[in-house]
Design a protein around this nucleic acid. Structure first.
Lengths: 192, 192
DNA sequence: CTCGCCTTTTGCCATATGGCAACTAATTAG
DNA sequence: CTAATTAGTTGCCATATGGCAAAAGGCGAG
């Protein structure tokens, strides 16, 4: 019971009926990851996903020059998933790695499908999560085109201060689309 | 009947039963737009969406310096929609405009919801469309960070040659995250 | 056909950011 | 606690792309 408390912050009793929660919550099991563990590796097809209770993670891709580029950061209550690999059932290009020790609640594709097709509220919830990720990605993408590096950094600082505080500059830099050198200069106000 | 043929390229009889098509197809009506017509304007909440039968359209946002940035191009068989405004029921930041005369098949949110929650195949289809858009957006976003402007242009040329042929350089340039000046130089091989 | 307008090109220079290398600070392992 | 490794900083210069302005080209309206 104690165990279930966290998942109720995800599947709020305001939105979900008790009967629905009784179907959903038992389908998740708690899993722990240690710092640097991979939750997903390039080339695999994502079959599991997690809600992050505590800790931080990031996803990244390797570009054609062998550099890694952070595509997202995950923190408490986020869904940790590669949407396209999970739903299109294709091998992914992304890696997902724990940046700290993490406590997660895990489920799999088959279970997701069963809940998705049988519970309307779960469908709406899942769709909302996906669309919210889409929205964030679009804003990030536009920001890379339209804003200066410094503006993007300030934005991230406002949106996700806990990320900036807990994640290495190297990873933040590639997420912002710049090098660690430039980020260092931005942080020190050298290059306005 | 003739009318329905196009929608069957969207809702393929391979995937949908006749009984399902009979519920879905009548919910769409043909609508025509003229070049430069707006399908969606900044500040509005998207309540309609379209499948594009013929013509081209683009979506764009205005950045904080008053410049417009193309976020996507649409051509035959694409869903023309702002996913986040449509599903989150929020006012949009995007504009969608016809770049040529267009023939579209229109439906609305309420109808979508009814079909989505009652027909499993429709749900899967809708989710696949959304995830495919998400995937394309992520690739575009990574490409802006990892690839040179010239590489991005060549990529677009391969992926969507009909777009490059039919759309003004100004719009292609902002989609690629560069200025029309740079794009002109890239096209002429001046700046390798 | 021609005028006027909008798009594209190009010269020139400005600017943001990249990237090496060397240095310093912080963290981790033993 | 110390050594070893990793993360962050900074000087210096390189490079990709921006952006103005002027010219050239394409295209629709009358």
């Amino acid at each position: 019971m104690q165990d279930k408390h966290f998942l109720k912050t995800i599947f709020s009793p305001t939105d979900f009926k008790e009967s629905e929660l009784a179907l959903i919550l038992p389908k998740f099991k708690q899993v722990k990851f240690s710092k640097n563990d991979f939750l997903l590796k390039e080339g695999k097809t994502e079959n599991l996903y997690w809600f992050l209770e505590s800790g931080f993670a990031r996803s990244f891709v390797n570009d054609n020059k062998g550099k890694d580029i952070t595509t997202n950061f995950y923190s408490s209550t986020d869904v940790v998933i590669d949407w396209s690999s999970f739903f299109l059932r294709n091998p992914t290009r992304e890696n997902i790695q724990a940046l700290t020790d993490c406590v997660c609640w895990q489920s799999d594709f088959e279970t997701f499908q069963q809940l998705f097709h049988s519970i309307e509220t779960f469908r709406e919830h899942g769709r909302k999560r996906l669309v919210t990720s889409y929205f964030a990605l679009k804003n990030h993408s536009v920001s890379i085109i339209a804003d200066q590096a410094k503006e993007r950094y300030i934005q991230l600082l406002n949106d996700k201060p806990h990320i900036v505080q807990n994640v290495s500059m190297q990873h933040i830099a590639t997420f912002l689309g710049i090098t660690k050198y430039s980020l260092s200069r931005i942080r020190n106000g050298i290059s306005l």
